[in-house]
Amino acid sequence: MYIKKILLIIVLLGLIAGGAFAYLIYNALFSPNTAFNNKEAYIFIPTGSSYDDFTNLVAPLLSDMETFEAVAKRKKYIDNIKPGKYLLKKGMNNNEIVNTLRSKNIPVNVSYNTQETMEKLAGRVSSQIEADSISLLKAFTDPEFLQENGFTGDTGLSMFIPNSYEFFWNTSATGFRDRMRKEYLRFWNDDRLKNAEVLDLTQIQVISLASIVQKETAKVNERPRVAGLYLNRLKKNMLLQADPTVIYALKRELGNFDTVIKRVLYKDLELNSPYNTYKYAGIPPGPITMPDISAIDAVLKPEKHDYYYMVANVEDFGYHKFATNLAQHNRNKVQYIRWINEQNINR
Rank of each mutant, 00 (worst) to 15 (best):
M1R: 06
Y2T: 06
I3P: 00
K5A: 05
I6R: 12
I6L: 13
I6F: 11
L8D: 06
Y23G: 14
I25Q: 12
L29T: 01
N33L: 02
A35D: 09
A35Q: 10
N37M: 13
N37S: 15
K39C: 05
E40I: 05
Y42Q: 13
Y42K: 11
F44Q: 04
N56Y: 07
V58I: 15
P60W: 07
L62F: 11
M65A: 05
M65I: 12
E66W: 12
F68K: 11
E69K: 13
V71D: 08
I78G: 01
D79L: 00
I81G: 00
I81K: 00
P83D: 03
L87G: 02
K89Q: 13
N94K: 02
N95F: 14
V98W: 13
T100N: 15
N105Q: 15
I106Y: 14
P107A: 11
N109P: 01
N109L: 14
N109D: 08
V110E: 02
V110D: 03
V110F: 13
Y112K: 04
N113F: 10
M118Q: 12
G123M: 04
A131P: 01
K138F: 08
D142H: 10
Q147K: 15
N149R: 11
G150L: 15
T152Y: 00
G153E: 07
T155G: 08
M159E: 02
F160G: 01
E166I: 02
F168D: 04
W169L: 09
S172C: 03
G175V: 07
D178V: 01
K182C: 00
Y184Q: 00
F187W: 11
F187P: 05
D190S: 11
D191C: 00
R192Q: 07
N195I: 01
N195D: 09
Q205V: 01
V206L: 13
I207C: 12
A210T: 10
K219W: 12
R223H: 03
R225S: 07
R225C: 09
G228R: 12
Y230V: 09
L231E: 04
L231Y: 10
N232R: 10
R233I: 09
N237Q: 10
L239P: 15
D243V: 14
T245D: 13
Y248I: 01
L250D: 11
L250R: 14
L250Q: 14
L254E: 10
L254Y: 11
G255H: 02
T259Y: 06
V260A: 00
K262S: 13
R263L: 01
R263F: 02
L265I: 01
L265T: 01
L269W: 05
L269F: 03
E270T: 07
P274N: 03
P274E: 02
Y275D: 14
N276L: 13
N276Y: 12
N276A: 12
T277L: 11
K279M: 05
K279D: 04
Y280S: 13
P287Q: 08
M290P: 01
S294K: 12
I296Y: 05
I296F: 08
A298H: 04
A298T: 03
K301V: 06
M310I: 08
V311C: 06
V311P: 04
K321S: 15
L326C: 05
Q328C: 06
Q328E: 15
N330G: 02
N332G: 05
K333P: 00
V334S: 04
I337K: 02
R338G: 00
R338C: 00
I345C: 03
I345A: 02
I345V: 04
N346W: 08
